[in-house]
Amino acid sequence: MPTKAKGPSQRQLRAGELVRRVLVEILAGASLRDPALQGVSITITEVRTSPDLKHATVYCAPLMGTSGVDMEDVIAGLKRSSSFLRGRLGREMETKFTPRLHFLADTTFDTASEMNALLSQPAVKRDLRRGEEE
């Protein structure tokens, strides 16, 4: 009998949201020295924590979309700044452990805009209307 994959626990979800909110405040208020992060507005879309809350995967995207911003450079800059961010996170949060931060680019906005572009093509609209009529 196959086992069902369990989602994150309520504890993991609460901790991830707490880390996300605090990181947003830190990034909004702190001026990071890394050149890849200078003048770039970053949004933290989601934080997923490990079951023991010692690791956090941080999904981020540029605030104004990906135009003119090399997301690989931004992620590399965030990785270089992760010890500073973790230190600030530890001072702001009241938790037993401060999680190690792992940064990844969030591509869901790009995927959604690609889907919208596909669905707005005339041939696709025509096929969708034909399916509704049947």
Rank of each mutant, 00 (worst) to 15 (best):
R14S: 11
I26N: 06
R14I: 11
R86F: 08
S50V: 00
V47R: 06
A76C: 01
I44A: 04
T111W: 07
L53E: 10
G7I: 07
T107N: 13
I75Q: 05
T57P: 02
L118W: 09
R14M: 08
K96N: 08
R20W: 12
L18D: 11
V24P: 01
L85D: 11
K6Q: 13
R130A: 13
L18P: 00
L37D: 01
D106T: 04
V124I: 15
P35D: 02
L89K: 05
I26G: 06
D73Y: 01
R126K: 12
F84Q: 11
D73V: 00
S81T: 03
H55R: 15
S120T: 15
P122I: 08
R86S: 10
L13T: 04
V47L: 05
L101W: 08
R86H: 06
R33G: 10
P122C: 08
C60Q: 01
T111A: 03
V40R: 04
Q10W: 07
R91H: 15
A105V: 02
V24T: 11
A15I: 11
I75V: 13
M115L: 15
M71F: 04
D127M: 14
P35Q: 00
S83M: 05
T66S: 08
Q121Y: 08
F97Q: 03
S9L: 07
R88L: 12
R11K: 12
S9I: 08
L13C: 07
A36C: 00
V58I: 10
S41M: 06
S81Y: 00
S67Q: 08
L27N: 06
T107L: 06
A36S: 03
G131Y: 09
Q10G: 13
T108A: 15
G65T: 06
R129Q: 13
H55P: 07
S113V: 08
F97V: 12
L27C: 05
S120N: 15
R130E: 07
I75S: 01
S113A: 04
D106C: 01
E25R: 14
E17W: 14
L89F: 06
Q12V: 12
A105E: 05
F109G: 12
L78D: 01
A15F: 09
Q38K: 06
G90P: 00
S50K: 10
E132Q: 15
L32V: 01
E94T: 14
K6D: 08
H55S: 12
R80S: 00
L63K: 01
V24L: 10
E46L: 04
S83F: 11
R88D: 09
A76D: 04
Q10A: 14
S82I: 00
